[in-house]
Nucleic acid binder design. Structure first.
Lengths: 215, 215
DNA sequence: CGGCATCCGTGACGATACTG
DNA sequence: CAGTATCGTCACGGATGCCG
């Protein structure tokens, strides 16, 4: 019966980095993690936000991730009866890996190529590192033409630190365009300078909005 | 003439993490970086310390990394006239990525499989994060049955933070076996407990050795 | 001997079509 | 909606050969 999975290709090295790459080094795997870090996702949503991945590869990766304890399948019963994929705690622990990749990759962004897909929440990872500390946990909505997502700042312990699901009232709201967002991520533009130049609008009256404005 | 390399396969996503994976997401690339983080290496050395990589893939990766500005070729003129590969500053900036991968992958090490290759310096990355802060820059030699490597602690700015090249007199020396080293990396064993149990020997009289002993 | 280039068999990948 | 089936192509791994 068991079709004897022909043994996933391993580096066969007794090395922590090589073991990590055995688990998540396959093409598309870390990008699936990036998507799931924003919260539970349906198969079709994943396929839509990962342009270029073929259906069978996506299905295979999700199965592998499940078998390795990185993700789980779950049925949601309410009206929107569907199966969603969700990271386990072990899978969510990959956040620092994606953070490091995003920080290193931000300078490679450059100008947007005509073939480049774009989703608003892809800015979440590099952006988080560029925003000032808020002291306490704060939720910031980021609004771009391409979409909206929210960041949870200051509280790195409980679950994913960004998402685009339903949110309560945020502590502040940031309105900007994709190019401004890129300059922020690269560090070429400071939040304060962007606000002064009128390229970034900070909405909100609370202390978090005040900190973001740089006052 | 230009054979028009059919364009390296890209994710075509305007996302910092995806751009990073475009550059270093290919099989073997990050492991080559791991090797070069220890210092300049010859082609043959790389091939020897990356068991399983085929000669053409290694040559192709090195050429890609050179084209992308991650590594350079250099001739060393003295008696050992050979060409060595060396990371550029941009390539060395991948250290946090490998750190994050190593930290995540350490719990996956488990028991050593009979097929697993092992090199002493593969412990350098996860081990660095488990050693106490030394205040000032310190060089620690780590001695295992499989080989020796040294760590530069406390001074993360100047060049690679580990290596196995020729070293001057270290500030301290750590002697242990591979299994003890694994438990240290996983956090299952503290340095102090290992010393008390006689599984780790700390050699040296200076302040760094004293800190490592946990006094 | 170090540093690849070439050839070949296998498997992973990408696109499309189709199904419960 | 959530995949499975099929197929052509390309990347990978292993072995060998060439060349300074």
């Amino acid at each position: 019966m068991s079709p004897r999975q022909p043994r996933r290709r391993s580096y066969d090295q007794y090395c922590a980095s090589a073991r990590a790459l055995d688990a998540v080094g396959d093409r598309w795997t870390l990008l699936i993690v990036r998507e799931l870090l924003a919260g539970p996702r349906r198969y079709t949503d994943l396929h839509a936000d990962l342009p270029g991945v073929s259906t069978d590869v996506l299905a295979t990766r999700l199965k592998d991730m499940e078998a390795q304890g990185l993700a789980t399948r779950r049925k949601i019963p309410p009206p929107g009866a569907a199966t969603v994929y969700e990271l386990t705690a072990r899978g969510a622990d990959l956040l620092p890996v994606l953070h490091a990749l995003a920080e290193w990759g931000a300078p490679e962004l450059g100008d947007r190529r005509p073939t480049d897909a774009l989703r608003a929440h892809w800015f979440a990872l590099p952006l988080m590192r560029r925003l000032p500390a808020t002291g306490t946990t704060a939720v910031v909505d980021v609004v771009l033409d391409e979409g909206v997502f929210h960041l949870r700042l200051g509280g790195g312990d409980a679950g994913p630190a960004y998402g685009d699901g339903p949110a309560g009232a945020p502590d502040a709201r940031l309105v900007l365009d994709a190019d401004t967002c890129r300059e922020l991520c690269e560090g070429a533009l400071s939040l304060e300078a962007g606000v002064k130049a009128g390229r970034i609008e900070v909405v909100g009256a609370g202390p978090v909005a005040t900190v973001l404005r740089g006052d």
